[in-house]
Nucleic acid binder design. Structure first.
Length: 720
DNA sequence: AATATTCCCGTTTTT
DNA sequence: CGGGAATATT
């Protein structure tokens, strides 16, 4: 690369940023405050290494999310670097390497990644196998303990040895049974991906050497959120060449609950005594007032390395704290302000609402919906959690990895084909007694008479799988279409009429997603796509562009920035979050979480709380978050939201006028405050909910839950 | 065997 | 409140 080109990589960077970009050999720690241009630095650094110092294939960058990986890959490309660097999350990287070196890793070549649901199911089985009761040993609790053990790289035996008390010993038994089940099914859970990789790097020197030689320059972003397994992987990959660049910010460590150890970043200089340290402290993102407020808050943390955040940006607006009466009012106030900002010309995509727990999104969603403000919720996993989506994926998973009995049992009677619980039990016991796996019983032409009358149906199902099997060698979108069509799922879901939820539309969307992925990765296999889908996170599925306001948890907000930021629910027990039963909770981590949220804001930051909050069906009195009291006096404006008593609130019932579903029928003319006049085209009455479908003159169809809608009946004579 | 209904429970954050 | 499991019904 020419001198001119290197100059270009350095253009617009300040001195410490340049140092970080140009430091090639040896360990480097970049402590980067919020908004300090870290992304720019690591992108340029990767480009510099790939083009000037070495070849692209020797550069590895590990990011926290898939989305960040994709963006970084693209940015490096626009810097005119030859393709070939590896940018990936820890999990995706490990999955790829474990598959590539499956023999050394002692995992099946076609292992599948078991998500949280699968893991729960398997744990239930494991608890059962250990003759324990699910009430005493709840899957959730056991899951947490096992996950922690795996993150600490403890096998069942080691875990058992390390714990003397009876309860932990018992969980160790479940852990062992769970591992047995996983291995029988050819599955790896999220933690396994890291743990296995760490262990083979440790135990197989030849492979470790090979990988270290491949990845000669390693960058780990968000180093403050690495856990023991990730730490070990990073260290082992760079043991000899020591070219590890860690970037991050201890003040933004927010994943302690999932095993992340803030100590990893704090001890970097001890681990690497000759490390170069670069501090990025100039903030280019936020106004002075926003930065000062956030900085003041974070100084409340006692266990902390002091640092100086500063900015040359303007003072800006005061940070606002809005105290509302109720959570509904809070949502309305936020929606009002959002509407005003959009009216003033702020792009909706520059606006975000953050909250501590997902369930808080609902109130804001409702108010935005009513105002017709387009929004997106960073909760993409929910899409992959839909029943129909899981059904389709289960077919793929079974075809790719027939040992996956969790998926097999999911589809054996989906669509319904007359194979009920008793038949399944018989099938399982037949498999057990003949020492085979269930899929082997299905695939073999053996004797199914033990299954009684259902034998024919089971046999048919085995045939069906045989017919579908070739599809997985097709490109994923085609495989999906084939399977959806021929499995009977299509017919099954097409038959479901008058539903608001349209499974077929979701399946189409799944195929679109696969198509998009396939365009980006033309040579990818079904197996790779499944893996990709399993490792997607909430934030990965946010579609950046379009004119939508973004709603997300504070955790998902890390690494992003918006012109206007609203953080709702600043109440004691909610932020900082505290579980009802237990007193503990890392209050410093909660403070960091708030800090992360505040520092996402460029120009306008609003913090809100409600004195009464409707949570899980009950309105409760709340107390203000202590964090609000820690904000500086200057530059913060406190607003007591006046509570306009509307007809709605007087009417009670979630602040809405009661609607009587008896008044509604197909053809009824209605008026909506936003969309105007429309006509009811359908009603879906569920257990306690009624959904109204309405068509408007512009041809659009919309659906509301009757009790929440702002629809009003219109009599014919009014229309004239 | 499949579907409809009721009841009970648990309460975060996510790869 | 909402989801999942257990139970009742056809």
């Amino acid at each position: 690369m020419t001198r001119v080109a290197v100059e270009r990589l350095l253009s617009g960077l300040n001195e410490p940023q340049r140092e970080a970009v140009l430091h090639a050999e040896g360990p480097l720690l970049v402590l980067a405050g919020p908004g300090s241009g870290k992304t720019r630095v690591i992108t340029r650094r990767a480009a510099y290494l790939a083009s000037t110092v070495t070849y692209p294939r020797h550069v590895l960058a590990i990011t926290f999310t898939n989305k960040a990986a994709k963006e970084m890959q693209e940015r490096v490309r626009t810097l005119d670097v030859e393709p070939g660097i590896t940018v990936s999350t820890f999990h995706a990287l490990c999955a790829r390497l474990l598959r590539q070196y499956h023999e050394a890793a002692n995992v099946p070549r076609n292992f599948t990644v078991f998500d949280r649901d699968d893991r729960r199911k398997l744990l239930k089985l494991a608890i059962e196998r250990c003759d324990l009761s699910e009430t005493n040993w709840t899957p959730a609790k056991v899951e947490a303990v096992i996950s922690r053990a795996k993150n600490a790289l403890q096998t069942p035996v080691e875990f058992s040895a390390a714990n003397l008390d009876w309860s932990m010993r018992t969980i160790a038994r479940v852990y062992a049974a769970y591992e047995q089940l996983l291995s029988e099914m050819g599955g790896l859970d999220f933690d396994d991906l890291l743990m296995r990789m760490a262990l083979i790097l440790e135990q197989q020197p030849a492979l470790r050497d090979k990988l270290e030689d491949r990845f000669r320059y390693v960058l780990v972003d968000e180093y403050q959120d690495t856990n023991a397994a990730q730490y070990k992987i990073a260290r082992l990959l760079t043991r000899d060449h020591q070219n590890l660049c860690a970037t991050g910010d201890p003040d933004q460590s927010i994943y302690g609950w999932r095993g992340a150890d803030i100590g990893n970043i704090l001890a970097f200089e001890r681990d690497y005594p000759n490390a170069k340290l670069v501090r990025l402290e100039q903030n280019y993102r936020s106004t002075k007032r926003i930065l000062q407020s956030a900085d003041r808050l974070i100084t409340g943390n006692l266990k902390r390395k002091a640092k100086t955040l500063w900015t040359q940006n303007e003072d800006g607006l005061s940070v606002r704290v809005i105290e509302c009466e109720t959570s509904e009012e809070e949502a309305q106030t936020v929606a009002d302000d959002i509407a005003a900002q959009i009216g003033a010309g702020v792009a909706p995509s520059e606006i975000a609402v953050f909250y501590r727990i997902n369930s808080l999104s609902r109130s804001v969603e409702e108010t935005l919906l009513r105002r017709g403000i387009v929004y997106q919720v960073a909760r993409g996993v929910e899409f992959y959690n839909r029943k129909e989506i899981k059904d389709v994926l289960a077919y793929l998973r079974v075809l790719v990895n027939p040992a996956d009995e969790v998926s097999l049992l999911r589809i054996i009677n989906m669509p319904p084909r007359g194979i009920g619980d008793t038949t399944i039990e018989r099938l399982e016991s037949l498999a057990r007694t003949t020492g085979r796996r269930v899929y082997e019983v299905l695939a073999g032409n053996g004797d199914l008479t033990a299954l009684g009358r259902s034998a024919a149906k089971v046999h048919q199902f085995g045939d069906l799988l045989g017919q579908l099997a070739p599809a997985i060698h097709q490109p994923t979108p085609r495989a999906l279409e084939f399977i959806v069509r021929h499995s009977g799922l299509h017919a099954h879901y097409a038959a479901e009429t008058n539903e608001i939820e349209t499974p077929l539309a979701n399946i189409d969307e799944l195929i679109s997603a696969a198509t998009e992925y396939h365009e980006d990765h033309p040579d990818s296999t079904v197996l790779q796509w499944l893996e990709h889908a399993a490792l997607l996170s909430d934030i990965d599925t946010v579609r950046g562009q379009n004119g939508a306001v973004t709603l997300m948890t504070l955790h998902a907000a890390k690494g992003l920035e918006f012109t206007c930021v609203y953080i709702i629910g600043l109440e004691n027990g909610l932020l900082p979050f505290r579980r009802p039963d237990d007193l503990l909770g890392d209050e410093e981590e909660e403070r960091r979480l708030c800090f992360v949220g505040m520092t996402r804001a460029k120009r306008r930051l609003i913090l809100s709380r409600a004195k009464y909050r409707l949570l899980r069906g009950q309105t409760e009195r709340t107390a203000r978050s202590p964090y609000l009291d820690e904000l500086p006096d200057d530059g913060v404006e406190w607003i007591e939201s006046k509570a306009p008593v509307t007809a709605r609130q007087k009417a009670g019932l979630h602040g809405r006028l009661p609607q009587d579903s008896a008044d509604w029928e197909i053809g009824t003319l209605v008026r909506h405050p936003l969309y105007g006049l429309g006509q009811v085209t359908g009603l879906t009455r569920g257990g306690r909910r009624t959904h109204v479908h309405v068509r408007f003159p512009d041809g659009s169809d919309r659906t509301w839950m009757l009790e929440f809608s702002d629809l009003q009946r219109v009599e014919f004579d009014e229309v004239e």
